[in-house]
């Protein structure tokens, strides 16, 4: 699995950090930071959940 984030689209709602805090954080301006772009098997459900909850559809996942 490969995660990419579209930072210009990010609206800073923080849903991804709530869904998968080990994969996503927000920088000092509240914009998404990808901590890990290739999640291991145990983290993949969290990654999918973050992508589905993102209000800006700023998280893309390639399986």
């Amino acid at each position: 699995m490969q995660i990419t984030v579209n930072t210009p689209a990010c609206v800073g709602a923080g849903q991804c950090v709530m869904a998968a805090g080990e994969l996503f954080d927000q920088d000092d301006d509240g914009i998404v930071m990808l901590l890990e772009d290739s999640p291991d098997a145990a983290q993949q459900a969290g990654a999918r959940r973050a992508a589905s909850l993102c209000p800006a559809r700023a998280i893309k996942i390639a399986e």
């Binding site: 609206v11 800073g12 923080g14 950090v17 709530m18 805090g21 954080d25 301006d29 509240g30 914009i31």
Partner: peptide, 17 residues
Amino acid sequence: HGKLRRTVLGRFSVRAV
């Protein structure tokens, strides 16, 4: 809208909160 919103986002992030 986004220009204005981005000036305050950092104060409402998960980490800031």
